[in-house]
């Protein structure tokens, strides 16, 4: 099993901290964003920045569930690092003239629903669920989107920023997959019983209703931005490859469920897409008011390097 030493990883994380103030946000290169790119990039960055925040909230919940002090501290850092990525991405948006004043990018409705669900229920979810879903979100959405960004945007500062973000994400994925394997240990029937107990929970069903349309919405957005959806599928495939490389990983029922779901997502002819695409359309009609105010942790986002 590809185990990692979590104590060493924590030391590495602490030694690899960076800040927005390390970056010269006024450096030349902002003008390299073309007028044609600008509106698409703005929508893209908004989604990306909110996906970072979904990851952040997920890690915050995982920190509460972590079985050891070291893992708890690692997740606390990951929570902060995802916030740092969102902050840095907002700073890039600001650099490219996409944010006015204290304006916060608007999340799409499916992201908003996912945030709402995470805020209400993620602290009640077992580590097994979050520890298996968050890697999928990170690898699929984050991974695919970042690749696209680096292919399309020539601003050298953007590359500099994402080099830092990618280095953080590599550590996140290392720990993610290590934990997924860890969660696959134990007696199979116990894992199965625990999984069934969680699957039938109404909170999780609501989570699925937020998560499934989010993936399809992101796929549609990616296509709209001119990125091949195969890029997303390749990233999802990576989740199955890495997560399933060991016996322990494959024994994790949540890995199996999420992988199976991934296979349905990448098969455009699968019947799965009918109801889920309908949900995406339906979600367009949800009035923002119905969701109430955004949680107060959202207000901690900032593009300003200093406070």
């Amino acid at each position: 099993m590809a185990t990692i030493d979590l104590d060493n990883m924590l030391a590495k994380i602490k030694a690899s901290q960076w800040a927005l103030a390390d970056i010269d946000w006024e450096a030349p290169g902002a003008e390299m964003i073309s007028e044609a790119q600008w509106p698409k990039l703005k929508a893209f960055m908004s989604d990306l920045m909110w996906i970072e925040h979904v990851g952040a909230r997920g890690f915050a919940a995982m920190a509460k569930k972590a079985p050891t002090d070291t893992l708890r501290e690692i997740y606390t850092y990951f929570h902060a690092e995802e916030q740092r990525h969102a902050n840095a991405e907002m700073a890039l948006m600001r650099r490219w003239g996409m944010l006015e004043g204290e304006e916060l990018p608007e999340p799409n409705i499916n992201l908003r629903l996912t945030i709402e669900w995470l805020d209400r229920y993620s602290d009640d979810m077992p580590l097994e669920v979050l520890g298996s879903v968050i890697p999928m979100l990170e690898i699929a959405l984050d991974g695919a989107l970042l690749k696209f960004l680096l292919d399309e945007v020539n601003d050298p500062l953007c590359h500099q920023v994402f080099e830092k973000i990618n280095a953080d994400e590599a550590r996140h994925l290392g720990v993610d997959f290590h934990v997924m394997e860890m969660l696959g240990r134990g007696r199979l029937h116990q894992l199965a019983v625990k999984t069934i107990g969680t699957v039938v929970s109404p909170k999780l069903i609501m989570g699925v209703l937020a998560y499934a349309p989010l993936l399809n919405r992101m796929r549609d957005n990616i296509v709209e931005m001119g990125l091949k959806e195969e890029r997303l599928y390749e990233a999802m495939d990576k989740y199955q490859r890495i997560g399933g490389r060991t016996k322990e990983g494959r024994r994790n029922p949540w890995f199996q469920i999420i992988s199976q779901h991934g296979r349905m997502v990448v098969d455009r002819s699968h019947i799965y897409h009918k109801p889920v695409d309908a949900l995406v359309k339906l979600s367009n009609y949800i009035p923002r008011r119905a969701l109430g105010p955004v949680p107060s942790w959202v207000k901690e986002l900032t593009w300003r390097p200093t406070a």
Partner: peptide, 21 residues
Amino acid sequence: TWPIARLCENGIRTAEGIEHQ
């Protein structure tokens, strides 16, 4: 509640990337 990354000339840098002065 962000972890403190380090102290710097003007204040405290926390892991969410912000320098609090």
